[in-house]
Amino acid sequence: MLELRSITAGYDRRAPVVRGISLTIEPGEAVGLLGPSGCGKSTLARVAALLHRPDSGTLVLDGEPVRGWRHHAPPARRTAIGVVFQQPRLSSDPRLRLADLIAEPLRATGRREEAADRVAELAEPLGLTPDLLRRRPHEVSDGQLQRACLARALVLRPRWLICDEPTAMLDASTTAALVEAIEDYRAATGAGLFAVGHDRTLLRRWCDRTVHWDDLTASSVPPGDRPGSPLAARRPAGAP
């Protein structure tokens, strides 16, 4: 079970983008969270993925409350969650060949020797040919790169998958192919899914249950108290 309990998070303590949000995902369940861009749903996804420490609130993962985020979380906890990000180009290290990109989590967790087999096993159904696996990110298309990013998210066999608009930049066929691959993995492993996005049709078709951001916030935030500029809210102020 993945439980977010009254999470408040953001990049500026005075103006958090996520305020007191609670959401529970049952094991093996696929939950879609719908919301307009800049509303804070990506931040919530990052909190759930142990990538962003919330200002307050609790995250309970498989019955155990999370005490640390990012490097403060033990690697085994972090790797129990696979994450697929919105922009494949930004979420892949430009220097790594696709095969290394996919194998990176295995190497980082000291399971180097499994890499070759596991990469081959994942690449085949995703249509990543040996030729593609030898290339670097700038030599493949967005769709191909996102397939590799999905393989990377699955390489450690996570119990949870968190997808932050993984198909927003992709065409219909690649979207359908990625969703199919994720669903195949979930069918085989019983992993739970937390998908965040703005495409109603897609999330309703994909997920067991969809919730709207406004319905989550309605219970916790006084209306009309929306945070400021969406663009400012998306990234920490460090970005140029």
Binding site: R46, A49, L50, L51, R70, H71, P75, A76, R78, T79, I81, G82, V83, F85, Q86, Q87, L90, S91, S92, D93, E104, P105, A108, T109, C149, R152, A153, V155, L156, R235, P236, G238, A239, P240
Partner: peptide, 23 residues
């Protein structure tokens, strides 16, 4: 380093279990 650190690919590495040193 600061600008790279906020890139999603660093998030991906953290999520993949990479240590601070490795990142």
């Amino acid at each position: 380093v600061l600008s790279l650190r906020s890139r999603p690919y660093i998030d991906a590495a953290v999520s993949g279990g990479a240590s601070r040193w490795r990142v």
